[in-house]
Amino acid sequence: MSTIMLVFIWALLISAFLCLYRIAMGPTPPDRTVGIDILGTIVVGFCAFMSLYTGKDYYMNIGISWALLSFIGTVALAKFLERRSFDE
């Protein structure tokens, strides 16, 4: 149980660090934004692992909230990239 769980969590950590590499090194601003978007989806996977490991269901609440906030952040950043103000 714990060994296979550790392997999963290290694999997800490696993918999160690959996203962080893209956020730090991206040549243009949209590249960094893509990294942020993908990182938000990976964190939902982490929440599912925590829920499975501890057996408590309320970690999934955090997962749903995180997916929601990630979606809103992506939409706001996309609107910002279009060079429009937020209220039109």
Binding site: A48, L68, A78
Partner: peptide, 23 residues
């Protein structure tokens, strides 16, 4: 709850990708 979360991710993730591509 994890099924609800999966449906949510499946609906919103392509929408975010579309908005980012257009931006």
């Amino acid at each position: 709850k994890s099924l609800i979360c999966a449906a949510f991710v499946l609906i919103t993730s392509p929408t975010g990708a579309h908005a980012l591509a257009r931006g």
